[in-house]
Amino acid sequence: MPFLPATRRDRRTRPVRRRARRTPPGSRRARGVRVALWTVVALCVGSYAASLLVPLYFQVQEQRLLIVVSGSMSPYIDAGDAVVMKQIENPAELRVGQVVSFWPQDSEVLQTHRIIRLEILPVLEQDESTGRMVPKLDEATGEPITRPYIFTKGDANDEPDPNATPVNRVRGVVLAVHPGWGAVLGWAHSATGRFVMLGPPLLILAGMEVAAVVQARRARARRPALGIERSQVDDLLFE
């Protein structure tokens, strides 16, 4: 055991409890600023997280959220609304009057309109001799090959849609409409929305880190030297 100076014997009987250094209490103003900044960070990040969780919530239930950008189904669905859509597994689930989302025959853009008629049409081929379209026959059974179609119309449109749509191009049936959700979620998921909602928190956090580094350096500069040489410590330790 190393020899300890007599003046420190008392201390040996009383273990010294070490506590972590406490940062000096900031002024009320500084604390308020930190609280405000952290509030901004929490609000922005929390809002963005909510915008991700909402569609995922529906996806977990095997549904999808569709943002409607056209007003052809007004007033039932307005542009900027979001609809909850469920994919259909069986064409027999379709009914006249249902609102469905589908890809029209002439487009790869999803459209949401109401079914006004369901019909089974024959698949046609041109008779080379007469030029007329005749039903195509199944080679195995000799029966005409048919295909189910939906005829649709937007509630706000005067005329039905020009083309019928095969049922296999129906994406899903609309279960519910949430007014205004589409505009909010669409913006949040856009590049602009991500930048606005996540950029400020990252800037704030970076700024707080820089401020902490500067503050730590200033604190070290102000701290007095201990007055103990390194060689003295080594001597005591390895004696």
Binding site: P55, L56, F58, Q59, R64, L65, L66, I67, V68, V69, S70, S101, W103, Q105, E108, V109, L110, Q111, T112, L121, P122, V123, L124, M133, R147, N163, A164, P166, N168, R169, R171, G182, L185, G186, H189
Partner: peptide
């Protein structure tokens, strides 16, 4: 989980119509 009705998306099958 979220898409717009003006999005391009995969279509199940390519079906020609009839005139």
């Amino acid at each position: 989980a979220l898409f717009r009705d003006n999005d391009d998306a995969g279509v199940s099958g390519f079906t020609t119509g009839s005139v």
